[in-house]
């Protein structure tokens, strides 16, 4: 196997983005459903994780239902300060993701904290460290999180 997923890898990835059974031999159950061998399924998943095609294999947690909080935020960063501001955010542990996007609001990041009150403190910390105003876009309602992608 190479670092490029083959057809069977893609079939596994498409079939396994959720619904992994909670039974004593879950890989055997998956293998049966796909007409494969239990150890081959385990070996392929391990390989896909090892080469980074899968970030991981296991539970995806909902931080908010575990008492934590997340908030999408954005900054309008002057072009000449962009790299410096990105470096500041890279060092702040509350910043979980940060993306450059084409818009006047050109830096979009997710704050993740252990408590809801932590979000406001983290946003103020970003403002203090950058001198920029953080636009806060807390989720008001979640319609659906598919998160599945076609491999």
């Amino acid at each position: 196997m190479t670092a490029t997923p083959d057809a069977l890898d893609r079939r596994l990835i498409n079939a396994l983005q959720g619904g992994f059974p909670i039974v004593p031999r879950p890989f055997a159950a998956v293998a049966d459903a796909l007409g494969l061998d239990e150890d081959e399924v385990i070996g392929r998943i391990a390989h896909l994780v090892e080469v980074g095609i899968l970030s991981r294999f296991g539970p995806m947690l909902d931080a908010e239902r575990l008492g934590g909080a997340v908030c999408l935020c954005a900054l309008a960063v002057p072009a000449e300060r962009f790299e410096a501001v990105a470096a500041i955010l890279a060092d702040l542990p509350a910043v979980a993701h940060n993306y450059e996007r084409r818009h006047a609001l050109n830096m979009w990041f997710v704050l993740a904290t252990e408590t809801p009150a932590g979000i406001e403190a983290a946003a103020r910390a970003v403002e203090a460290a950058t001198g920029l105003t953080v636009a806060r876009f807390p989720k008001e309602r979640e319609y659906f999180i598919g998160m599945r992608v076609e491999a």
Binding site: G19, G52, M60, L66, A151
Partner: peptide, 22 residues
């Protein structure tokens, strides 16, 4: 794990793909 799934604390169990690598 069944309870955590039912309550939504665990959204799902399975493969978490790296979009870029796909």
């Amino acid at each position: 794990l069944e309870r955590l799934l039912a309550s939504g604390a665990v959204r799902r169990i399975g493969a978490v793909p790296n979009h870029y690598r796909l």
